[in-house]
Simulated scan of single mutants.
Amino acid sequence: MASDVISTDRVEEANVYSAAGDKLGSIDDLMIDKVSGQVCYTALEFGGFLGIGTDRYPIPWSMLKYDVAVDGYVVPLDKTQLEGAPRYSSDAVPDYDDIYRSSVDKYYGL
């Protein structure tokens, strides 16, 4: 029987695909609410070449669905939608305060 839980080190670096099956990138980080303990966002590593010049794209965790067929996560997004999404470099992680979270949620229509 397969487990319904997964270790964070297996989630980080997991591949993320569009609904059409295109690989969008991989999970770089999880953003966890300190009080509730719930995962709120994932930072998707997207763009660049061989890990150079990649940015982090915060995506609300609720948008990701694990798909055993691809052994990764699927989001209802494509590369074009991500190119216009909020993003940051790995050395400039923003505070996930209410204003920032609101802007990310608004971009994704949540």
Rank of each mutant, 00 (worst) to 15 (best):
residue 12 E to T: 15
residue 12 E to H: 10
residue 12 E to S: 08
residue 13 E to L: 15
residue 13 E to I: 14
residue 13 E to F: 15
residue 13 E to W: 15
residue 14 A to K: 10
residue 14 A to D: 12
residue 14 A to Y: 14
residue 15 N to F: 13
residue 15 N to C: 11
residue 15 N to Q: 14
residue 15 N to H: 13
residue 16 V to R: 04
residue 17 Y to M: 03
residue 18 S to G: 14
residue 18 S to E: 04
residue 18 S to N: 07
residue 19 A to L: 14
residue 19 A to V: 11
residue 19 A to Y: 11
residue 19 A to Q: 14
residue 20 A to Q: 15
residue 20 A to T: 15
residue 20 A to V: 02
residue 20 A to G: 09
residue 21 G to N: 06
residue 21 G to H: 06
residue 21 G to W: 08
residue 21 G to R: 05
residue 21 G to A: 02
residue 23 K to R: 15
residue 23 K to N: 11
residue 24 L to E: 04
residue 25 G to I: 05
residue 25 G to N: 06
residue 25 G to D: 08
residue 26 S to P: 02
residue 26 S to A: 12
residue 26 S to I: 09
residue 26 S to T: 13
residue 26 S to K: 13
residue 27 I to G: 01
residue 27 I to H: 07
residue 28 D to K: 09
residue 29 D to Q: 12
residue 29 D to L: 12
residue 30 L to I: 14
residue 30 L to G: 07
residue 30 L to N: 09
residue 31 M to Y: 12
residue 31 M to A: 10
residue 31 M to F: 14
residue 32 I to V: 15
residue 32 I to C: 01
residue 32 I to M: 05
residue 32 I to T: 06
residue 32 I to Y: 04
residue 33 D to M: 07
residue 33 D to Y: 09
residue 34 K to T: 03
residue 34 K to M: 05
residue 34 K to N: 10
residue 34 K to G: 05
residue 35 V to S: 08
residue 35 V to H: 06
residue 35 V to C: 04
residue 35 V to N: 04
residue 36 S to T: 12
residue 37 G to M: 06
residue 37 G to E: 05
residue 38 Q to Y: 14
residue 38 Q to I: 09
residue 39 V to K: 05
residue 39 V to F: 09
residue 40 C to M: 13
residue 40 C to P: 00
residue 40 C to W: 05
residue 40 C to A: 13
residue 41 Y to F: 15
residue 41 Y to G: 00
residue 41 Y to V: 01
residue 41 Y to Q: 02
residue 41 Y to R: 01
residue 41 Y to L: 08
residue 41 Y to W: 06
residue 42 T to D: 00
residue 42 T to Q: 03
residue 42 T to S: 07
residue 42 T to M: 11
residue 43 A to K: 00
residue 43 A to W: 04
residue 43 A to Y: 03
residue 44 L to Q: 01
residue 44 L to E: 07
residue 44 L to Y: 07
residue 44 L to H: 02
residue 45 E to A: 12
residue 45 E to S: 14
residue 46 F to H: 06
residue 46 F to A: 03
residue 46 F to S: 02
residue 46 F to D: 00
residue 47 G to F: 02
residue 48 G to L: 07
residue 48 G to E: 06
residue 48 G to R: 03
residue 49 F to A: 02
residue 50 L to D: 08
residue 50 L to E: 12
residue 50 L to S: 09
residue 50 L to M: 15
residue 50 L to T: 00
residue 51 G to V: 07
residue 51 G to D: 07
residue 51 G to L: 05
residue 51 G to H: 07
residue 52 I to P: 03
residue 53 G to Q: 02
residue 53 G to V: 06
residue 53 G to E: 02
residue 53 G to C: 04
residue 53 G to F: 03
residue 54 T to E: 13
residue 54 T to M: 10
residue 54 T to I: 02
residue 55 D to W: 09
residue 55 D to I: 12
residue 55 D to H: 10
residue 55 D to P: 00
